[in-house]
């Protein structure tokens, strides 16, 4: 992807984001909204400039470089897995979901050796248990299925 395309997409998304928050900010009381309104105006101006300069030929000539290949499939895979993991924490709690997360993510990251997967599971889960529950006395999520 080229930086011009990325900046156009980002500039547009940021402008929309700023506009939505500006509307929300308008609903705040007069004495509260001043500071955030100022910040939103500055953000809006910066976004607009980021977007508009992509049409400047001089800028394009100088800076329209490649930003590298973005492997959306692998990124979305990990993000998707993290979303499932977080939702799972609400229901099943830390231990079952962590086993699921470690196993599936290692498999998706092309680790096919079951010994590595099993050892990673045992080591990481034990490490977190000892560190958080035994050492720091911080409880980990139990999940509504198991009593939370």
């Amino acid at each position: 992807m080229k930086i011009k395309t990325a900046d156009r997409v980002m500039g547009f998304i940021l402008l929309v984001f700023v506009f939505i928050f500006y509307l929300i900010n308008k609903g705040l009381p007069e004495k509260v909204k001043g500071y955030t309104q100022g910040l939103l105006i500055l953000l809006g101006l910066c976004s607009l400039y980021i977007l508009l300069r992509t049409w400047n030929r001089d800028w394009e000539k100088r800076f329209n470089r490649e930003i590298g290949v973005i492997n959306f499939r692998r990124i979305l895979m990990v993000i998707g897995l993290l979303i499932i993991y977080i939702f799972g924490l609400y229901i099943f709690g830390y231990f079952p979901m962590t086993v699921f997360f470690i196993t599936v993510s290692l498999f998706l990251l092309e680790i096919r050796n079951w010994k590595i997967i099993v050892v990673t599971n045992i080591v990481l889960i034990m490490m977190m248990y000892i560190l958080f529950i035994v050492f720091l006395k911080i409880p980990l999520p139990i999940g509504i299925m198991f009593g939370e």
Binding site: L82, Y90, L124
Partner: peptide, 23 residues
């Protein structure tokens, strides 16, 4: 690296949870 990356993910998620005990 895959093992380390998964380890970082687990550490990061549980570390974030531990601050306020909130998912």
């Amino acid at each position: 690296k895959s093992v380390l990356v998964v380890g970082i993910c687990i550490f990061a998620t549980m570390g974030s949870y531990a601050i306020n005990g909130a998912i």
